[in-house]
Nucleic acid binder design. Structure first.
Lengths: 338, 338
DNA sequence: TTGAAAGCGCTAACAA
DNA sequence: TTGTTAGCGCTTTCAA
């Protein structure tokens, strides 16, 4: 009752394993009658080729590893959908791994994926320094970084325009007449956190609004911090008239705090968040956001990886930056009347 | 520059591959000095053991496959988190696959996972009939069904109390004084869809409220259908005073429709949804829901699978049903004043 | 405590 | 058109 092997099939069909292999792999050069006999044997035995053995000799697994930091953040499943779709099309299988934002787990998973001989790696790293990916780099396995850059090594990268998106959002708020604009930043040692702050500053500079030091708050990209920092802003003597939140989860926390404090969003307070969130169109007023092309991000990442995996010659590193889109809804349409 | 093998390590350390293998697998029985020499060789060469070759001889991959129908439905990532955690603890690696609710893709993925010789399978099937899992069953590979039963075969199953949850929700509405209670059902050929309807009917019967045929609407568990069916309810001559929605996505659609029509939830309309949703605490009034223990579901599923994978003797099928929890918030606290 | 060698299931020359 | 055979990198007897 153990699994049938290619040999069992060969015996039953009275041919050699080589011929069975030819049929399985559709290589042709097998007489029609023989092929039919083999096909019959295969279905009779419920034979399933052993990919492990195949990988052993082919030295390729037709598998890519995808490492993401947070599977419960809806952003990543969407990116993964894009990756998977392209991968399927090219006959690659996708193995998804979640690090929970832990560089240590990322290191372990990288090790496991290398042991399992994945043909390539797409990663959104938990630590942009990237040392935890060292062993993958040493191996020379194709890698593409998505959404977060990797500093220690030269790898192909697909990002979205963080600076651009934050700039557009901030500018929009400025053009609405706001001068006291707060920003809830992400960690400044991450590319998204840092760059979104840069875009924010850029817009202020352009319109010659001095950076309001007291209104620059640093969170950790999690809901809790968005909540607390918003409370802090509300408790200020001179409150901001607008808030820019640097990511989706902090936006959620921010909205919760706004509701709880009774701050009047859309009246006393204008708001734009980075990244669309489910709740955006449910709250009143609906939330204006900077929206990113998630699927596209994933598709492009795989396409690049695929080229790397299949190309033989020299490879020129590529860095793509996709454009975000400003979605204006109700949370920032009012003019500041102060 | 190709990958170093165990042989390279053996040569460098001037021992046989057998000894290196002993060290790698921590089997003991190796002289301290030898072990150190080998360890040094390993790190010098950046040697990573090849799991493919190991699986080849061990006939186990220490890998489980997890098949889910929709990675973008936040319910599943949470279940997967539970699975992964337990799996990691036992040294198993989790391979996550998404079928997009397509039985055909499910069949393909099952095939791929079998080819890759996963040691076990946890699946939330896209089609409860389960024929697309036939080959896995034939192989006799351990399988655990999660959240959705599989009809064609006897497999271990972990579900949540759909009937119970729907019953509790409906009863709560009844006790609030409601008589005209609508239900937005899921597909009646799925266990969740069917059972939640059963729980609904059970509560009505218990309180001798006749089933209001016109208020029983069947959706497809997607947002769109929740939206449309709610519009339909609103347009009725005699509207319901309460709605029970059978899943999270339809709840979202329902809420959208309620907001759009101007129906006064919490006043003219009471609402309870099955499954918690992100927006539940953001809308006004906040939504009462039947909440399920997602992580726990995943943990239990792996625990059972693990037992099956490691046990040798007879195996008694198990069917677990976890209890949901009724979370009362604001959307149903009002009394019907008709 | 160590090594030699067989073999896991498959593919890919090379021969016939 | 088909078969023979040598590995792929590893683990595991069995001997030494």
């Amino acid at each position: 009752m153990s699994k049938p092997t290619i040999e069992d099939v060969a015996k039953l069909a009275k041919v050699s394993t080589a011929t069975v292999s030819r049929v399985i792999n559709k290589q042709g050069g097998v007489r029609k009658a023989t092929e039919e006999r083999i096909a019959k044997a295969i279905s009779q035995l419920d034979y399933i080729p052993n990919a492990v053995a195949r990988s052993m000799v082919k030295k390729t697994t037709k598998t890519i590893g995808v490492i993401i930091p947070d599977i419960n953040n809806p952003f990543f499943p969407l990116v993964v959908s894009g990756i998977e779709q392209q991968a399927r099309e090219k006959g690659y299988f996708t193995v998804l791994c979640n690090t929970n934002e832990s560089p240590e787990i990322e290191r372990e998973l990288t090790q496991i994926l290398l042991e399992r001989s994945v043909d390539g790696l797409i990663v959104t790293t938990a630590d942009e320094d990237g040392k935890q990916l060292q062993s993958a780099i040493d191996r020379g396995i194709p890698i593409v970084a998505v959404d977060r850059a990797i500093k220690s090594f030269e790898v192909d990268t697909v990002l979205v325009g963080n600076i651009d998106g934050a700039y557009q959002a901030t500018r929009h708020l400025i053009l609405q007449g706001h001068k006291r604009i707060a920003i809830i930043c992400g960690p400044q040692n991450t590319t998204p956190g840092y760059e979104r702050f840069v875009g924010f500053k850029k817009a202020l500079e352009e319109y010659q609004i001095p950076l309001p030091e007291d209104l620059v708050l640093e969170g950790d990209f999690k809901e809790e911090s968005g909540f607390k920092l918003t409370q802090k802003l509300y408790s200020m003597q001179e409150r901001p008239t607008a808030i820019f939140s640097s990511n989706n989860l902090m936006t959620v926390g921010c909205v919760k705090a706004v509701m709880e404090t009774g701050w009047q969003m859309g009246k006393e307070l204008a708001f734009i968040g980075f990244d669309d969130v489910d709740i955006a169109t449910f709250v009143t007023p609906s939330l204006s956001v900077v929206s990113r092309p998630m699927r596209q991000l994933g598709e492009l990442a795989f396409d690049i990886l695929y080229e790397k995996m299949t190309s033989t010659g020299e490879w020129v590193r590529r860095h793509y930056v996709l454009s975000p889109e400003l979605k204006i809804r109700q949370s920032c349409t009012i003019k500041n009347t102060n």
